[in-house]
Amino acid sequence: MTIKVDWLRGCATALVTPFRHDGSIDEEAMRRLIERQIAGGVRILVPCGTTGESATMTEEEDQRVIALTVEVARGRARVIAGTGSNATADAIRYSQAARALGVDGVMVVAPYYNKPTQDGLFAHFRAVAESVPDLPVILYNVPGRTSSNIAAQTTLRLAREVENIVAIKEASGDFGQIMAILRERPNGFRVLSGDDALTLPLIALGADGLISVVANEVPDLTSRMVEMALAGDLVAARQMHYRLLPLMEANFMESSPGPVKAALAMMGLIEERYRLPLVPVQERTKARLREVLTELGLLKGASQAAD
Rank of each mutant, 00 (worst) to 15 (best):
R9C: 11
G10D: 05
A12Y: 00
H21C: 12
D22K: 05
D22I: 08
S24C: 07
D26F: 08
D26N: 05
D26S: 03
L33N: 14
I34A: 04
A39H: 06
V46Y: 08
T51N: 09
E53T: 04
T58V: 07
E59L: 14
Q63A: 15
T69V: 12
E71R: 14
V72Y: 07
A73E: 09
A77K: 06
G82D: 03
G84Y: 01
N86H: 12
A87S: 11
A89R: 14
S95C: 06
G102K: 08
P111V: 09
Y113N: 15
Q118M: 07
D119T: 08
G120E: 02
L121W: 11
A123Y: 06
E130A: 10
P133S: 00
P136A: 06
I138T: 01
V142A: 05
P143Y: 05
S147H: 15
I150W: 05
Q153H: 12
T154D: 09
E163K: 07
N164Y: 09
V166K: 01
A167R: 00
I168A: 05
E170D: 11
G173I: 00
G173S: 04
G176W: 15
Q177L: 14
I178A: 13
I181S: 11
E184V: 07
R185W: 10
P186H: 14
V191S: 11
G194I: 04
L200P: 10
L210D: 07
S212L: 10
E217M: 14
D220G: 15
S223M: 15
R224K: 10
G232Q: 06
G232A: 13
L234P: 14
V235M: 06
R238P: 01
Q239C: 14
Y242I: 05
L245Y: 11
L247Q: 07
L247G: 05
N251I: 10
N251G: 09
F252H: 05
M253W: 04
E254D: 01
P259D: 03
R273K: 08
R275S: 03
P277I: 11
P277M: 09
L278E: 06
P280C: 04
T285A: 12
T285D: 08
K286P: 00
L289P: 02
E291W: 14
L293Q: 04
E295H: 02
L298C: 04
K300M: 14
G301R: 02
A305I: 13
A306Q: 06
